[in-house]
Design a protein around this nucleic acid. Structure first.
Lengths: 189, 189, 189, 189
DNA sequence: TATGAATGAGTATTCATTCAT
DNA sequence: CATGAATGAATACTCATTCAT
């Protein structure tokens, strides 16, 4: 029986890629990623067909980790706002706890190397937030409104995270401020 | 003087750079930019010392065009909200009218090739918005609150613009939705 | 290991560099050196980090070959003058036998691409000649006198070699003339 | 009557070239040479057809200045050795007084940009030294011997000069040492 | 399966020279 | 005659990918 591709190595490559993409952007050389992962240059291409494939897999991997963090707690018993606030805090806290992962994710968000279908796959991993974001925008269909709100939620969180990460002393204030802005924007109060 | 550095060529280079950066990101090759501008490869470097210099100049150029668009009308006679809404609409309309410029600008926003001092220079071009964004966030200093609000405003506008541009039929609705979200978020109503 | 860095290729690159540096100076393009060595352009940079590194390695390589040639014979049994004369002859003969190597070496001697530490390393390879050059110059310390004499010896040999190489028919006479000049200059007779 | 090419500018270009060639070698850019001379880039090529032409003219110019320095004094009344020693001292002193000129000259000496016919022209400027160098080498024709001796004289002086210039405190000792070596080498004592 | 040497197209930048002004 | 903008070939070096070992 042929030895399968090692999950350890795959994971090490994704972790190395996350770090280097965070620090150097998507232009980080595959040779450095391989070295950082402790494998040979050519080995990377046994786990990922191309560099673009690696970046897409990395995107899914990081999104999946984020998703796991957001669904850690059972919030069924709480009010809508409490649940939304809890998830918001989990997002920001995840980003503060994993700054390189968060940084890599924002690099990938704006990269055209990440394909639309990859983004769609990642989007599908997340629980439905249509209840939270509501249907607040006149002139847009329910679907359009939800998609728009979700994107606003995402960019808001990313911006909040970057301010919180840059000012550790005020991180809790930025976290609260970001949520307040979002909640008012969604016309919940 | 044998021949002055042609403003036409400088402009053509900036326009070519805007287009290619919009389509390919900051990695767009200088050789292609020069060709697109209709000049020789070496000529680019008579107008811009390095590629990074070109990108920084491009950032200032586009920001300056945007700024001009936003200050086209005299709004002194209107209410705060009317003024804010008018500026918001001018922003989105500028982006819809110049999609490549807007796209290039968002590429440059996230690029680390644009130096902090360039960003500062660009920021200084814009009129003060502290009155519009107010001081709405508990736990943050006036300065922190303003900076945070400005950034939220910027990312909101960018997101709104991308949705509006992708759905021309609904662009007016996205434009209105984005402003409504912002205005509520800033706790003005 | 997939394949070790081939000593053959490293040698071929050094040989190609020697030839092209001899003919064109240190400005010889790396692309030509690679082609002459029969490898791809990029391959050169797997063996030598930079062109300057290649030039420094080439300097050491050629000096080492020269040094080997000079220490081929065991001269312990001979008088000082006989030993000096033998080494002189070995030098000139090596240059006549390897004119490109000798030419490359004189190009590198005057190039500022070859670092002082490289020169020091090369100098350390050679046997001590302080006995031969003596301490003949008034007003200079032993160390200064030796360094000066060594340099005179080197430039004398290089000049002699170039005359000998240009006039093969008289090469033996130039060889003898150069040594006679040196020996008298060092005040040995 | 058309205004002739200005001798001032030609001289300024040669002076600038000497300085930059001394500091950067023959690879010094023509644009820098022109700027240093206070003229426009294109102007250089009205005085010198090509960069190689400039380098050849520079060689002749510097050799001519050196020659002037060596023939400053009337030495007819002195002995052969006294005359030789005086000329030697004038050479070294000229080099110490004009280190950039001397450095440029040694760069040009080893450059293949300086054509043989230029070297021949320069050689013809100098007074006959056959009396000084004598005909001391067995197996060589008078002409060969003289040419060889002249070259030895030149390289010896250049080496001596570089040591003297690097050690100003000992420059007189090196100057004396170099002459002593030369004079003994020529078998005069 | 893992390795890493080999590849060569691609990149930013330089520079001698030309020529329109 | 002087200028300096324009040129484009040339240069050192990088990097994703392949494949022999």
């Amino acid at each position: 029986m042929a030895r399968p591709l090692s999950e350890d190595k795959q994971f090490a490559l994704l972790a190395a890629a996350a770090e280097l993409v965070a620090l150097q952007g998507v232009g980080a050389p595959t040779s450095q990623i391989a070295r950082q992962a402790g494998v040979a240059e050519g080995t990377l291409f046994r786990y990922f067909a191309t560099k673009d494939d690696l970046l897409n897999q990395l995107y899914l991997h990081l999104k999946s980790e984020l998703c796991t963090a957001l669904t850690a707690e059972n919030l069924a018993a709480y009010s809508l706002k409490e649940r939304a606030h809890a998830v918001w805090n989990l997002y920001i806290d995840w980003g503060l706890a994993h700054p390189l992962a968060a940084k890599a994710l924002s690099q990938l968000h704006v990269s055209d190397k990440v394909l639309p279908e990859t983004r769609a796959k990642a989007h599908a991993m997340f629980p439905d937030v249509s209840e939270i974001v509501g249907n607040v925008f006149a002139g847009l269909s329910q679907q359009q409104s939800t998609a728009f709100s979700e994107m606003l939620l995402g960019t808001l969180a990313e911006t909040t995270l970057s301010f919180a990460a840059s000012n550790p002393a005020q991180s809790q204030s930025y976290k609260a401020a970001g949520f307040a802005f979002l909640w008012r924007g969604l016309a919940h109060d």
